[in-house]
């Protein structure tokens, strides 16, 4: 059944080479934790991606209950966490996953740095990786506001004050992110849009670039 379906598609699109390229490419011994235990440091990139997938999925499901409105945001979060079955787990995954993804990404960055893997010819992939890092921090910052509790509100206020102290452009950056002069209704909708559409869009594009480059250049050789 699956085989005939596969063949039907393959006859028309010739997908076998693509699939075989992904499946059959050789992975060297020095990154394989089954051969060298120390090679687990090479797993952090894959784990970052795994947690990112969890974040995207749990985030998509959270929006089924969440509303980005200053009156109702807090109560929608309260409701989905305490009244919806498994709400505590789904919100917990998104909350703790946000921290874990930063940890994993940090470890991955350190691995790449200390193994010198960012050197020629992989400079571009390092830059894309750093951009992913910044996008993730942006996701963390914007996501923190969404429950609209005091912690969220005041952390955002402080964060925006920091952005506002950038020379020359600070006030504009701050007002643009605020969506006005105060942290309020328009800040919340703005952060929601950035958190749910703009940054994930950028993230997916950067991730695609990251993976295509890895596949094209291969994993850096052993030290």
């Amino acid at each position: 059944m699956f085989k005939s379906m596969y063949n039907w598609i393959d006859e028309r699109l010739d997908i076998t080479p693509m699939w075989r390229d992904i499946a059959d490419h050789e992975v060297p011994e020095h990154v394989n934790p089954a051969h060298h235990f120390s090679a687990f440091v090479y797993c952090f990139g894959g784990l970052t991606f795994f947690i990112t997938v969890i974040q995207i999925l749990s985030g998509m499901f959270l929006t089924m209950y969440y509303v980005p409105d200053i009156i109702n945001a807090y109560y929608s979060v309260d409701y989905l966490q305490h009244q919806v079955a498994f709400g505590a787990i789904v919100r917990g995954m998104h909350h703790w996953g946000a921290s874990l993804v930063i940890v994993m990404m940090f470890l991955h960055t350190l691995r790449v740095f200390f193994t010198g893997s960012y050197k020629a010819p992989r400079e571009m992939n390092w830059i894309v990786g750093m951009l992913i890092f910044f996008v993730m921090l942006g996701l963390g910052f914007t996501g923190y506001l969404l429950p609209w509790d005091n912690k969220a509100y005041y952390a955002t206020k402080v964060g925006l004050e920091i952005a506002g102290s950038v020379p020359y452009l600070g006030d504009y950056i701050k007002e643009l992110m605020n969506g006005g002069t105060i942290v309020g209704a328009q800040t919340l909708t703005r952060f929601f849009a950035i958190h749910v559409f703009f940054l994930p869009g950028a993230l997916l594009a950067l991730l695609a670039g990251h993976f295509i480059m890895i596949r094209k250049q291969g994993i850096s050789g052993p030290l």
């Binding site: 917990g92 909350h95 703790w96 609209w148 509790d149 005091n150 509100y153």
Partner: peptide, 11 residues
């Protein structure tokens, strides 16, 4: 460890 949620934001 449930995800923390404080009190509604009060400016």
């Amino acid at each position: 460890e449930p995800a923390p949620l404080g009190y509604p934001a009060d400016p």
